[in-house]
């Protein structure tokens, strides 16, 4: 009964939404407003205006840098939130040993074998993210996934102990901090907060630094989420 009512509501809403979206410019048409207004300006501006040949990176780190700053703050806030509300600090009972989940030797060997290559690929995505498809967050996710895989093989304790707690908090905060620093550098060198200063080599340096910080921040956040869930699960 309740489900039938929900189904009815959903169908009515979907009908209304279909009526709405069918009046949008058809997707894929190059005459759509999306392609004629702001995006066209970005494409016309090219690398000189945007600072990066990958225009998505140019939008993320230059034209709409405040959004990306907000994005790294959201993920940092979520990490702080997970640490603050999780159970792992509440009960201090003896934690069961990490080796309770035996990993098959095949999986173990393959993960160890692949780890350097995955790390290399993640680094490539981060460092070349302003030229080729990729970027800080994408590379950071690959790096985070690698760390999660390693924690399966080596046990979460080894991963947890990679950094002492105070250093860990500094590293977790790296993305919003580096972003705030570049914002101020933009004010000092180019007159506006979040502006990318000339010359081109400095701009590229800042872009790479930002991507690196975003990547490290994203990787640590992902591992933080995973380890927090894992610890809560065992408590």
């Amino acid at each position: 009964m309740r489900n039938a009512l929900a189904l009815l509501i959903v169908i009515v809403l979907a009908g209304l939404m279909m009526a709405g979206v069918s009046q949008l410019p058809p997707p894929g048409s190059p005459d759509g407003a999306v392609h004629r207004h702001v995006a066209a300006h970005y494409i016309d501006g090219g690398t000189e205006a945007g600072g990066a040949p990958n225009l998505v990176t140019a939008v993320l780190l230059n034209y709409r840098a405040l959004d990306t700053y907000g994005e790294v703050v959201v993920i940092f806030a979520a990490l702080v939130a997970v640490l603050a509300v999780g159970l792992s600090g509440h009960s201090r009972g003896p934690r069961r040993q990490p080796d309770e989940l035996p990993v098959s030797p095949v999986v173990d060997r393959i993960i160890r074998l692949l780890a350097p290559f995955i790390a290399l690929f993640a680094l490539f995505m981060i460092l070349e993210g302003h030229v080729l498809p990729g970027g800080g967050f994408q590379g950071g996710v690959v790096l985070g996934a690698l760390l999660i895989l390693l924690s399966l093989v080596l046990g979460p304790r080894r991963i947890r102990r990679m950094l002492p707690t105070p250093a860990l908090f500094w590293t977790r905060a790296i993305a919003p901090l580096v972003f705030a620093l570049t914002a101020i550098a933009g004010l000092a060198l180019a007159g506006w907060l979040f502006a990318l200063p000339e010359p081109a080599w400095l701009r590229e340096l800042i872009l790479v630094g930002l991507e690196l910080a975003i990547g490290i921040g994203a990787a640590l956040a992902l591992v933080g989420f995973y380890l927090s869930l894992e610890a809560d699960h065992h408590d």
Partner: peptide, 26 residues
């Protein structure tokens, strides 16, 4: 490029909310 940038930010937000939700469910 705008659409791609928006989605990337949106994904990060969605991931963050999901992570917090899972911890709360635990």
């Amino acid at each position: 490029p705008i659409a791609h940038a928006l989605v990337l930010t949106g994904i990060v937000v969605a991931l963050s909310v999901t992570a917090l939700a899972l911890v709360l469910i635990l």
